[in-house]
Write a protein that binds this DNA or RNA. Structure first.
Lengths: 142, 142
DNA sequence: ATCGCTGCAAATACTTTGCAATGGG
DNA sequence: CCCATTGCAAAGTATTTGCAGCGAT
């Protein structure tokens, strides 16, 4: 574990406590695992790293973290959702259509599109996401 | 049924035939239903309009149409995917976080982001999608 | 000591599959 | 007539739920 990762956990503990939620070993481990994986793990990925924690507990806590906006859901994976930390710098995703891998990339924030969408649809805008689809370097070869 | 809709079906029939696929009443009805709904139906929506067609047949054909790029999958819906016709003018989607409705809106094509993503990740780019999230006018009131 | 959380097992939801019967080409 | 397709039922996969017992506060 690195310092940056520990800092993230240390910020999250009081955040949970303030909301009357208990700091269980399972919650700490699930969060640590998501932080240390760095990518965009599925529930199954988390369970493989923490096989002694019940799948139901992982599902319940991922759902809890989503409702607290600690996690973001990436529903593009073939049926199974992937998750990432919510408090990250703004970025977009590129997805491999062959192997399903998701990579982050930076691009100037497209906030302008939110104004246009608001004018055209009268929605109250909250956020936006963008995904670029293609073939990753590995899958291009094969 | 309107002329534009019939034209779409009429284009699709030879497209299927050329590929050695059979023109079954079920396929015609499923396509007509998706065209006439205009929105972004789920498999369940299609089945409600065509209850006498087996769910399995609807799933199988939706999958077939996806592989033929007649349909596009919109995986944002809570677990269940929504579908739209693929041969539509370029547009983006705005999603209501409360009721799940998806509305199309126009915005100048963001092809530039594909070049940037390509340079940064070495992916071979195919396409991109963008979703804006917010509250629809109806859900803002409630 | 309380009551929120965990873990199990069962239930649910969505989708795919095996296979006999059907019907489009 | 042949074989792709349909429809059913069963299986598969992902997720949620009920509840007894545990353990964080």
């Amino acid at each position: 574990m690195f310092i940056v990762e520990d800092e993230k956990i240390i910020e999250l503990i009081p955040f949970l406590k303030e909301r009357g939620l208990r700091i269980t070993p399972q919650r700490i481990l699930i969060l640590q695992t998501i932080i240390s994986i760095k990518g965009h793990p599925t529930v199954e990925d988390i369970h493989q790293k923490l096989p002694y924690i019940s799948l139901a507990t992982i599902y319940n806590n991922v759902k809890l973290f989503l409702s607290l906006h600690i996690l973001k859901e990436l529903p593009y994976g073939n049926g199974l959702s992937k998750y990432e930390l919510a408090n990250q710098p703004e970025h977009y995703h590129i997805l491999c259509e062959s192997c399903g891998e998701i990579i982050d990339f930076n691009y100037p924030n497209l906030k302008e599109i939110e104004h246009v969408a608001c004018k055209l649809t009268s929605f109250k805008i909250h956020t936006h996401q963008m995904e670029v689809y293609g073939l990753c370097p590995t899958c291009q070869i094969q």
